[in-house]
Write a protein that binds this DNA or RNA. Structure first.
Lengths: 205, 205, 205, 205
DNA sequence: CATGAATGAGTATTCATTCAT
DNA sequence: CATGAATGAATACTCATTCAT
C-alpha cells in the first residue's frame, strides 16, 4: 500500500487495496466516467486525479498529456470490443447464425462495459485521436464489410452496397442502446432478441 | 429577411457584405460549424467571432452567453427538423406510405442542413441545454411513438415495444448518414430508397 | 440593460423638457449619483448614458473621456463649495462669529448638495484628478490657514499648528455628516448648532 | 505600471525569500497597498499578483475571488484595530484618562498600520463587504456609544446626542490623519498630544 | 448634432502542466 | 515514485471609445 501523507486514507479509491502500478488503471477508470459525462474538453485534469484518488501530478507520471489519456482509453476499449466481437467468429455457419452471434456479442459488450461503449460513441473524437487509434476503427469496419460481402455472394443477405447495410445495422444497434438509455428502459434478453430479429429482416435477402 | 440558399461555404464573410441584424446569423452559422467540428467546450468564443467576421464583444450584444448561443442553435435546428418532418403529415395513408414520407423528409433535411443535422446528433447536449430545448425533443419522440402505435393497431407494423422500434429506425437513419460521411460516400436517391426499403423491412409486421 | 425594442424618445429624462445643450448637465447629474454610489472605476459609461437618458456616444460629444467627466464634476462642486463658503466672508467679525459663519455655510451646502458633498469626500480622487482640479483644493485650504493664523495672532484661537486645527475642524464636520448618514440620523438646526459649539471649543484659546 | 515613488519596505518580495503559507500574506499585503492607492475596482488581480511576486493563478489557490481578498483584508484590519483599542480598557479611570487612552491607542494603530488605517477609511466598502465584516464595525461603534453615555451620566462629558459626539471625535481623528498625510506633515508625540487636548475640549462638559 | 451597434483591449478566473519536496 | 502548490497562458465576458447612419 502506498503511503498517503494526508490524514484521511481511502477517499475515492475503489474498495480493493491498490498495489503500486494500477494507479494507471484508476486514472483511466476515472477519466472514462468523466469523459462520458462531460466530454473531453469539459473535463479538467485535476478532476480526473481527484476521482482517481491520486495527485494531479501523478497523471503526468503515467501519461504524456491529457490527450494521451483519451487515446489510451479509446484504443483500449476499441480493442476490447474488437476482441470480444470477432474472436472465434463462427466462420462456417450460415449468415443468420453469424449475425445473431455478432449481435449478441455486441449486446454483451454493452452490458459489461456500458461506459466504455458510451465513450466510443462520443463524437468529436476526431480532434484528439491519433493515427493508431484510427487504424483499429478501420480494421473492424473492414471485417464487417468482408462478412457482408461473403453473405451476399451466398445470397443470404440482400445485394445492397455493404457500407449502407453496415451503417444501418450499426446505427440501429447504437440507436437502440441510446434510446433505451434516454427512456430509462432496461433491455432484457427478450428485447435484445426481438431487436436482433428486426434488424436481420432489414438486411436479409 | 435574407434568404440563405446555399448550404455551402459561407465562412469569413467579407467585411462590409452584411447589413445590421444578420450579424446574429453570421454568429450562429460560425458557431454551428465550430461546434460540429470541435464540440461546445472545445470551441472558444473568439474563434466564433473570428469565423463570423465580427468582434468578440459583438457576440455578447446578440447573446447573453456562449450557452445562449448553443441553446438558440439547438432550438432553431430541432424546430426546423420537426417542422420539415411533421408538417402536413399524410395521416390517411397506409403505414408504408407514411414511413416513406418520414424517411425522405428526414433525408431531405440532412441534405439541406448537413451541419444542422450533425449538430443535433452531437452528444453531451445535456450539460448546457435548458428546459425549453428539451421540450422540443420530447415532442418529436411522442409523435413517433403515436405514429407507430397507430400502425401497430392496424397490424401494419410488428408488435414490438415502440421505443425499441424508434431506436432502431432513428439509429439506422443516423448510422447511415454517419457511415456515409466517414467513408465519403455520397447518398443519392437510389441509395436513400434502398436504405428506406431495408429499414421498413425491420419494422413491418 | 436588456435589448431596447421601442424606438421611443424620452425614457429616462427628467420631467422638464430639455433644451439642447443641457444634456451636458443631465450627464453630469447622472454621473454624480453613480460615482457616489459605486465609485469612479465601478461605474460604466453606458450606465451613465442610460441614467442621463442619452446615447452612449453623446457623452463623447460633450466630454473628452470618462476622466474628463469626473474632473469636471470635481471642479464644479469644489468651486461651488468654495464660493458658497467664502463669498462675502465677514472679515471684520471676531473669530467666534467667523467660525459660526463658516460652519453654517458648510452645513447649508451639505443640505443643498448632499451628493456633491459625498462626491467630494470620495477618496482615491488622486488617481484621476488633474492639476487644475487640485489647485482649487489648495486654494480653499490656504484660506482656512490664513483665517486661523489671523485669529491665532489675535489670541482668539489656540496656538496649535494650523494644519492640525484644520484637520480637526474639517474632519469633525465630515465625520458628523458621515456618522449621521450611516445612522440615518437627520441633522436639524439644533444639532448643527450643538456640534458647532463643540468644535469651537476644540480650537478656541 | 505607474511610477513608484516610495523606496520603502515590502514590495516585490525577493523570489525565494518566502516559504509556503505566507504567500497568502504576500497577496494580502500587495492587495492592501493597491486598494489604498487605486481602490478596489481600480485594481486588477494580475497587478496584485505581480506586486506580491506570485503567479495570477496562485491568488485563486488562497482566495475564492477578488472580493474574498477585500473582505479578508477588511475583517483582519478592523479586528486588529478593535483589539488594539479596546483590549484592557481602563474601565475604572475618569473619562479624561479613558479618552486619552483611546486616542493614543488609535494613534499608535495608525502609526503601526498606516495602510491598514487608510484602507479602512476607504469609502464604498458597501458594494463588496459581506455581513460578517459589517458586524465588526457595529461592535466598535456600540462600544464608543456606551463609553460616552457612561461618562455623560457621571457628568464628565457634555450632554449632547452621543452619535454626534462620536462623529465629531472620530471625524476629527480621521481628518487629522488625512490632512497630515496630504501635507506630508509627520505627526510626532507632541502633535498627537496637542490634538488630543483639542478634541477633549470639544466633548468635555 | 445624436445615436447605439460594433469593437478589441482589458478583466476575473480556470486549467493543463511542472517541479520542489 | 507521488504529490499538490504554483504557474501563466487561455477563456468567457465587460467596457471605454468610435463611427456609420
Amino acid at each position: 500500500m502506498t503511503a498517503r501523507t494526508t490524514p484521511s486514507s481511502t477517499e475515492r479509491t475503489p474498495p480493493r487495496a491498490r498495489a503500486g502500478a494500477d494507479k494507471r488503471d484508476a486514472i483511466l477508470t476515472a477519466a472514462l466516467a468523466l469523459f462520458v459525462e462531460r466530454g473531453f474538453h469539459g473535463t479538467a485534469v485535476p478532476e480526473i486525479a481527484d476521482r482517481a484518488g491520486v495527485g494531479a501530478g501523478t497523471i503526468y507520471r503515467h501519461f504524456e498529456s491529457k490527450e494521451a489519456v483519451v487515446n489510451e482509453l479509446y484504443r483500449r476499449h476499441k480493442q476490447l470490443l474488437a476482441t470480444r466481437v470477432l474472436a472465434d467468429f463462427p466462420a462456417e455457419c450460415v449468415a443468420r447464425e453469424q449475425f445473431r452471434a455478432l449481435w449478441h456479442r455486441m449486446a454483451r459488450y454493452v452490458a459489461d462495459e456500458p461506459l466504455g461503449f458510451a465513450f466510443l460513441e462520443l463524437h468529436n473524437h476526431r480532434s484528439y485521436l491519433d493515427a493508431e487509434s484510427r487504424a483499429i476503427e478501420a480494421r473492424i469496419r473492414d471485417f464487417g464489410v468482408a462478412f457482408l460481402q461473403a453473405a451476399q455472394r451466398r445470397g443470404e443477405v440482400r445485394a445492397t452496397e455493404p457500407m449502407i447495410l453496415i451503417g444501418i445495422v450499426m446505427g440501429a444497434f447504437i440507436g437502440l442502446v441510446r434510446f433505451a438509455a434516454e427512456c430509462k428502459l432496461t433491455l432484457d434478453d427478450d428485447a435484445w432478441r426481438a431487436a436482433e430479429q428486426c434488424v436481420w429482416e432489414a438486411i436479409r435477402s
